[in-house]
Design a protein around this nucleic acid. Structure first.
Length: 589
RNA sequence: GGCGAGGUAGCUCAAUGGCAGAGCAGGGGAUUCAUAAGCCCUUGGUUGGGAGUUCGAAUCUCCCCCUCGCCA
C-alpha cells in the first residue's frame, strides 16, 4: 500500500558553507529515509531550502560591504552544488527569500492574526544610532551588573554564567562598531503560545508514542514548565516584512518564518510540477505522515512552535472547513557531531566543510562514514582515522570487495553474462532466504528511523555472503565442474543484486554503478538538477529531483541467467593513511 | 541558575530490572576468486565516582564530577 510521506528537512542557514554537522544532523538522514520510502513505492515529498534571513546574515553582509541578498545567494549556490554532489535528493531545495515564500509567510501571519493567536506588546530595547537599527542582545557587550566582568554579552555573562537582560548591562556598546546604544521603545507581535498549551500536550500524548525519548521528554517538559508568548516580529530590515500598514520596517522573526518554508516549498514544488494543488495531498490528507529531520538545537521549534502555528491557522489556501493542516508525525532529531574531540566552531575553523572534502573523497565514502557515525542517540565524533578505517576495512573490504570478486569472476568465466545455474542446493536457498528476510529486517529499522542500525544490518548480510562464498564451490571447481561454480556464482550475484537495493539509500552513487554493471538499463533513482526558477520580479536557483526514470524497488533480486554484464570496476577506493595527518592539519587553521 | 540528553572494551557505538554485546583495531589459524581483500577462532570491561532500593542494577532513587543542547 502506497503511503504519503512528507520529509521536512531543517533549513540550513545560508551564512556559510555546509559542513558535516548539517549532513549528519539532518540532510543525510532525511535523504536516506526519502530514498528508502521511494523504493517502497511511497509518494515522497522532501523539501527544504536555505534560510536566507536573520541578523547574522545582515551583519556578515555589512562587513563585506555587500547586500544581504548578494551574500546569502553566494552560499545558497554553493549549497546546491554540494548537495547535488553528495546526493541529497530534495524534491525541491529552494530558499526563504523567494516571492512565493514571502507571500506564504505573510498570509500565514495574517491568518494567525485573524485567529487571535498573535498579540501586541511594547518592549524596551537597545538601539544603535550609528547603524540606525535595534541591536539583538548578542550584539551588545558591556559590564556584567553582577560580577563586573567587562565583556559580558547582552544575553549572558560568560564569566559568571548569569543570564542578563541587555538593558541591565553597565556601559553597553555595540559589538559591531563599538558605539553606545540608547534605549528605544518598540512594539511587537507575540505568538500566544500559552493558548495552545493544552492542545500541544494532547498532541504529544497522541503523536509522540513512537518518538525518540529525548525529543518527547524535552518537549513535554518544556510545555509543562509553562509556555510564554514569544516575539513573532523583529526590528530588522531584512526578512519577510510584516504585512500591515505602519509596520513596514519590521519583519517576521526568522525562526517562525523558516518553518513555514515546509509549506511554501511544498507549494512551490507543486507549481513547478504543473499541479499547483498537489501539495495538499501531504498537508491535508490525515493519513499522510510528516517527518521533520532536524538537529537537537531545533527541537522546540519543530515540536512546539511550528505545531502552534499550524494549529493557529488551521488551514491555508483551503476553503473546506472540515480540513486541517497536518501536524508532524515524527521529529527524529539527531544530536550533534563533534570533530576530533572538540565542538564544531566556525570562528576557529574547527570544521569539515562539504565543498572542500567533496574535492578529495567520493560522496559514498563520506555518506558511509557519516551514517556509521550518525549522532542518533547522543553526540558523536567525526575522526579522520576512523573515517579511514571504516572506509578501508568495512566499505571497501567487506562490501566493495564482495561485489568486485563475484562480478570479475562471472565476467571472466561466462563471457560477461550471468551464468545459467544448476538446481539450487540447500545452502544456496538458505543464503537467498536470509537476504530476502533482510528486506523486512532492514525495513523495520527504517520505519523506526534507526539508520545506523539499518546500514549495519545490511553490512552483516554482506558478511554472510562472504562467508557463503568461503564454503561454496566456485573458483576451486571452475575447471572440473563448471555447473557447480555457475550455481554458486548465480546465487552470489542474486545476493549482491539484492544487497545493492538494501545499501542504495545509504550509497546511491556506487549502487547505481553496480546496478549498471549488473546489466540493467534503467537507473535505481531519479536525477538531481540545479535549475533557475523565474518569479514575477526575480529569479532563484533550486535543486530538484526528477524521479521519472527511477526504477528501484524494495524487493529481492530477480536477476535472470544470461543477462549481459558490463565490465566490472571497483566500487570504492582504498584510502591512504597519510590522509589522517593531512586532514587533521587543516583543522583550526 | 532551571530543564533535557549523555558518560559502557584501545576506538566508534548497542543493550529500559534478568549471564554486559557488536563492528573495527589487537592475537592465532586454514585459504587465494577478489582492491594484501574475504573466512574461522580469539584476547579486551570494577558500565564516570559514591551511597541506596531489589533475589537481581549499565538500567530505578539520591549526592558528586564531566560533556552537550535549550531557556538565551
Amino acid at each position: 500500500m502506497s503511503e504519503l510521506i512528507h520529509i521536512s528537512v531543517a533549513w540550513p542557514y545560508a551564512n556559510g558553507d555546509l559542513h558535516v554537522g548539517h549532513l549528519a544532523g539532518a540532510l543525510l538522514p532525511a535523504d536516506i529515509f526519502a530514498r528508502y520510502n521511494r523504493l517502497k513505492g511511497n509518494r515522497v515529498l522532501m523539501v527544504s531550502g536555505s534560510d536566507a534571513h536573520g541578523t547574522p546574515i545582515t551583519v556578515e553582509a555589512d562587513k563585506r560591504g555587500i547586500s544581504p541578498r548578494e551574500f546569502f545567494e553566494h552560499y545558497h549556490r554553493r549549497s546546491l552544488e554540494a548537495q547535488k554532489k553528495i546526493g541529497i535528493s530534495h524534491d525541491l531545495f529552494t530558499h526563504t527569500d523567494t516571492e512565493n515564500h514571502i507571500r506564504v509567510a505573510q498570509d500565514f501571519f495574517l491568518l494567525l492574526l485573524k485567529a487571535d493567536a498573535l498579540y501586541r506588546k511594547i518592549q524596551r530595547q537597545l538601539y544603535s544610532e550609528t547603524e540606525k537599527r535595534f541591536l539583538p542582545d548578542r550584539y551588545v557587550e558591556g559590564t556584567c551588573p553582577y560580577c563586573g566582568y567587562t565583556e559580558a554579552r547582552g544575553d549572558q555573562c560568560d564569566n559568571c554564567g548569569r543570564l542578563l537582560d541587555a538593558l541591565d548591562l553597565i556601559d553597553p556598546h555595540s559589538k559591531i562598531d563599538g558605539s553606545k546604544p540608547i534605549v528605544h521603545e518598540t512594539e511587537h507581535f507575540f505568538l500566544d503560545l500559552p493558548k495552545f498549551s493544552d492542545a500541544l500536550l494532547e498532541y504529544i500524548e497522541t503523536h509522540a508514542v513512537h518518538w525518540r525519548p529525548n525529543v518527547v521528554n524535552f518537549t513535554r517538559n518544556y510545555i509543562e514548565g509553562g509556555l510564554k508568548g514569544r516575539a513573532f516580529t523583529r526590528d530588522i530590515n531584512w526578512g519577510v516584512p510584516v504585512p500591515l500598514k505602519g509596520w513596514e520596517d519590521k519583519h517576521i522573526y526568522v525562526w517562525f518564518e523558516a518553518v513555514m518554508g515546509y509549506i511554501s516549498a511544498s507549494i512551490e514544488w507543486a507549481q513547478l510540477n504543473g499541479h499547483p494543488e498537489a501539495w495538499k495531498d501531504w498537508w491535508y490528507d490525515p493519513a499522510a505522515k510528516i517527518y521533520c529531520f532536524i538537529g537537537k538545537d531545533n527541537i522546540p521549534f519543530h515540536t512546539i512552535f511550528w505545531q502552534a502555528e499550524l494549529m493557529g491557522v488551521k488551514r491555508i489556501y483551503e476553503d473546506d472547513e472540515s480540513k486541517q493542516l497536518n501536524l508532524p508525525f515524527n521529529v527524529p532529531a539527531n544530536e550533534f557531531m563533534n570533530i576530533e574531540g572538540a565542538q564544531f566552531s566556525k570562528s576557529r575553523n574547527w570544521a569539515i566543510w562539504m565543498p572542500d572534502i567533496l574535492t578529495r573523497y567520493d560522496p559514498d565514502a563520506i555518506r558511509y562514514y557519516l551514517t556509521a557515525a550518525m549522532p542518533e542517540a547522543r553526540d558523536s565524533e567525526f575522526s579522520w582515522s576512523d573515517f579511514l578505517n571504516r572506509n578501508n576495512n568495512e566499505l571497501v573490504a567487506t562490501w566493495g570487495n564482495l561485489a568486485n570478486r563475484v562480478l570479475s569472476f562471472a565476467y571472466k568465466h561466462w563471457d560477461g553474462r550471468v551464468p545459467e545455474p544448476g538446481e539450487l542446493r540447500p545452502e544456496d536457498q538458505e543464503l537467498l532466504a536470509k537476504i530476502e528476510a533482510g528486506f523486512d529486517q532492514v525495513g523495520k529499522l527504517f520505519e523506526s528511523v534507526k539508520l545506523r542500525a539499518a546500514m549495519r544490518e545490511a553490512m552483516r548480510l554482506a558478511q554472510a555472503v562472504n562467508a557463503y562464498l568461503d564454503r561454496a564451490p566456485w573458483f576451486s571447481v571452475i575447471k572440473q565442474d563448471k555447473l557447480s561454480a555457475a550455481t554458486t556464482v548465480f546465487t552470489a550475484l542474486r545476493a549482491i543484486d539484492s544487497l545493492k537495493v538494501l545499501f542504495s539509500p545509504f550509497l546511491p552513487f556506487s549502487t547505481e554503478q553496480l546496478h549498471m554493471t549488473l546489466g540493467y538499463d534503467r537507473p535505481l533513482y531519479g536525477e538531481q538538477r540545479i535549475e533557475t526558477v523565474q518569479d514575477d520580479d526575480r529569479a532563484h536557483d533550486v535543486l530538484v529531483y526528477d524521479s521519472s526514470k527511477a526504477s528501484g524497488k524494495w524487493k529481492p533480486s530477480e536477476l535472470k541467467a544470461g543477462q549481459l554484464l558490463q565490465k566490472p570496476k571497483p566500487l570504492y577506493k582504498k584510502l591512504d593513511e597519510s590522509l589522517v595527518e593531512e586532514e587533521c592539519a587543516l583543522l583550526g587553521s
